[in-house]
Design a protein around this nucleic acid. Structure first.
Lengths: 204, 204
DNA sequence: ATCATTTTTAAACACTTGTTTAAATTTGTT
DNA sequence: AACAAATTTAAACAAGTGTTTAAAAATGAT
């Protein structure tokens, strides 16, 4: 039977939809089973427990999330181009999966410190060598001398928060889903302009 | 009996702690009662239901959250000073209540559209006249001609995301709570530098 | 066709959930 | 002190939780 249509895969996909939209605490095993069109017992037959199913889903989502990131970071392009592409790709990817950033940040805060399921999962970013590259660019005077923690955080803040805070922003400005999507297309351009201008000020 | 030590106030304070840290779905009535050192039935005796208690807490948190915001926006200061002060005060306030931004954005996304409990709650921001002030500054050429939705969103992204994404950022950079707090002090300065530089580029 | 294995099902498990009840206690008033 | 009102309590309610069980159905090998 084709890989994506096995019972196991169907449950996993249903769980991904439910978990990412409602969070671990916000849904039940039965809701996931119903979303998959399956009997409740099958969830535990294939994944042992709600917790283990969640861990599988979380890892899958994380891998998807970091795929395009790593892609861009490993490109043979000037750093400035990489930053521009990073923002472009993040908005492209998250527009298709708008619930993912909120899911990741809230579930990363939920666990007790040093949860082995979440540890080391982000190390692949450092392994692309992006931080060394930024460091070199700073030494050569091509990039603003800003702490790399903050460089990362500013980039992520401006790429992810706009999707996480959709409900809040819609209340402030009284705009519907369609208008919000339009605003984000515009917003991405401002973010690129601001980030490039700040991180690479040496132009001219 | 003093206002803050009545049974009702104690339950409300306990509920605020529990709700803001774990979210509506992430906790039970009994957990709130235990946190307050009270019998479970008292929660419903004073607040009718978990949902109504949540609404009371949510409104209280929102009012706290917007208080310093509105304060700054109503000051008789140049717009640039207001933006600088806004960032300073946001970091100051949220450092004391780091769980609030994540609580607000996630609970604003949880509800069905047009939830009367959350509607109009943000209108006080517009009522400070900050948007008109920005508009005038743009006309006078003192502020970059950026859509005011995006101006708001960029400001909030860089003030709130750093606290929402603490767990995620700690995993990426392998740093503990103390080090993270230090990084945020530094980060605030970068944010001020970037935001002022971007929004008010006319300098010299 | 037989039979062992895997998959699926309905039902039940013990426990927690939000909420309500009715009795007990405390409080304030006369 | 006596009594009514407000407060607090333990207990129970039905419904929902994650999980397990054992029987039924489907599958594949001989």
């Amino acid at each position: 039977m084709s890989k994506d249509t096995t019972t196991e895969a169907k449950i996993k996909e249903a769980a991904k939809r439910v978990f990412t939209n409602k969070g671990f605490a916000g849904c039940s095993s039965r809701e996931i089973a119903k979303e998959a069109g399956m009997n409740v017992a099958l969830v535990n037959y294939y994944f042992r427990s709600k917790e283990q199913l969640f861990n599988v889903v979380f890892h899958t989502v994380m891998d998807d999330f970091m795929l395009s990131m790593k892609d861009v970071f490993r490109m043979k392009q000037p750093l400035e181009t990489k930053v521009r592409l990073f923002i472009e790709r993040e908005y492209e990817f998250i527009t298709k999966h708008p619930e993912i950033p909120g899911f990741i940040v809230s579930e990363m805060n939920r666990c007790e410190k040093g949860d082995s399921n979440k540890q080391f999962i982000m190390d692949e970013i450092a392994e692309t060598g992006i931080f060394e590259e930024m460091n070199q660019a700073q030494i050569r005077g091509e990039m603003r001398k800003i702490d790399l923690f903050s460089a990362t955080l500013i980039l992520m803040s401006n790429c992810h928060f706009p999707f996480i805070a959709k409900g809040l922003m819609q209340e402030i400005h009284h705009i519907d889903d369609e208008k919000y999507a339009q605003q984000l297309v515009l917003h991405k351009q401002y973010v690129i302009e601001m980030m490039i201008g700040y991180l690479f000020p040496a132009k001219k």
